Computed example of a mutant assay.
Amino acid sequence: MDIAEIKRNADARMDQSIAAFKNNLTKIRTGRANPALLDSIQVDYYGAMTPLSQVANVSLLDARTISVQPWEKGMGAKIEKAIRESDLGLNPASQGDLIRVPMPPLTEERRKDLTKVVRNAGEDAKVAVRNLRRDANEQAKKLLKDKEIGEDDERRSLDEVQKLTDRVIVEIDKLISAKEAEILAV
């Protein structure tokens, strides 16, 4: 293993942390409808718990309403029950084959709670990135200890990993700010 490989590995793993954080942000409800909000819902499909997206077509009707179109006629009631029992606080309404999921407006208190949730998720993502930085730095120090690289190379490696970490943390901060603005927008 050399310095370039350590940096590439850290960069790839930090990108994965950002992708995981973005995925977590899509699950946090805002005042606007988003089909990804229902991705975490599991439906009882012939005895097996199956993701909602695999038993129905999920799309937007308008800015505040998600439509769920089951692929099988008998699944409507099960899907409606699964959405109602999820911890998202949604109340689906059935209209024939179509299930409408209106997004209730958020109260000011709920908006503030959601911004705290976003900040905590952001802090978790930053901790994960800092752990990746620590691992990369330990690998560089091990190479120095094993005399595979010199002190200058080790110092350069630590600086490059720190710059990479700073860039990723700035990106996470931007994602947090954008999500908070989206939540607080009335």
Results as ranks from 00 to 15, higher is better:
R32N: 13
K145R: 13
A10H: 11
K179W: 06
K73V: 11
E182L: 05
E171R: 13
D159Q: 13
Q42K: 15
R130Q: 04
K141D: 14
I183N: 09
D166Q: 05
S177F: 01
A82C: 09
L38A: 11
D97V: 10
S59Q: 13
M49I: 01
A136G: 13
A82K: 06
E154V: 03
K112M: 06
L106I: 08
P102N: 05
E154L: 10
A48L: 13
V127G: 01
A125L: 05
M1R: 08
I99L: 15
N23Y: 09
N137Q: 13
L164K: 12
T115S: 12
K116L: 07
A36M: 12
R133P: 00
N23A: 12
I66Y: 07
D113L: 10
N91H: 09
I41E: 03
E148D: 12
L158M: 13
E85Y: 02
Q139C: 01
S86F: 08
I41F: 09
A178Q: 14
S53G: 02
E180W: 07
V43A: 02
V186P: 01
N131E: 03
L106H: 07
L144F: 10
D152C: 03
I99G: 07
R134L: 08
T26N: 14
D113V: 03
S86Q: 08
V101C: 10
P35G: 04
S67N: 10
R13P: 00
N24K: 15
S17P: 02
D166T: 13
R130M: 05
S177W: 00
N9M: 08
S177E: 15
A140D: 06
G31L: 05
L61C: 00
P35N: 07
A93C: 00
N23Q: 14
M103Y: 03
I66M: 14
E160F: 01
T26G: 04
D44V: 04
L88A: 11
W71A: 02
D11Q: 13
Y46G: 08
A48V: 15
W71T: 10
A36P: 02
L52C: 09
L143K: 06
V186K: 11
V127T: 12
N137G: 10
Q16W: 00
V55H: 04
V168N: 01
G96E: 08
V129C: 11
G74F: 08
L114E: 03
E160Q: 13
G47C: 08
Q162V: 02
S53H: 12
K27R: 15
K163Y: 11
V43T: 04
V118D: 06
V170P: 00
T107E: 09
A12V: 01
E80R: 05
A136N: 07
L88G: 12
M14V: 10
D39M: 03
Q16R: 12
L132D: 13
D97I: 07
L25F: 06
R100C: 02
G74N: 12
V68H: 06
V118N: 08
P104Y: 11
R29I: 04
T65N: 15
P92K: 06
K174D: 07
L38I: 10
D97N: 14
M14I: 09
N91Q: 11
D113M: 11
L52A: 05
G122R: 06
E109R: 01
K7G: 00
P104T: 09
D15H: 11
P92L: 06
G96N: 09
I99M: 07
A136M: 11
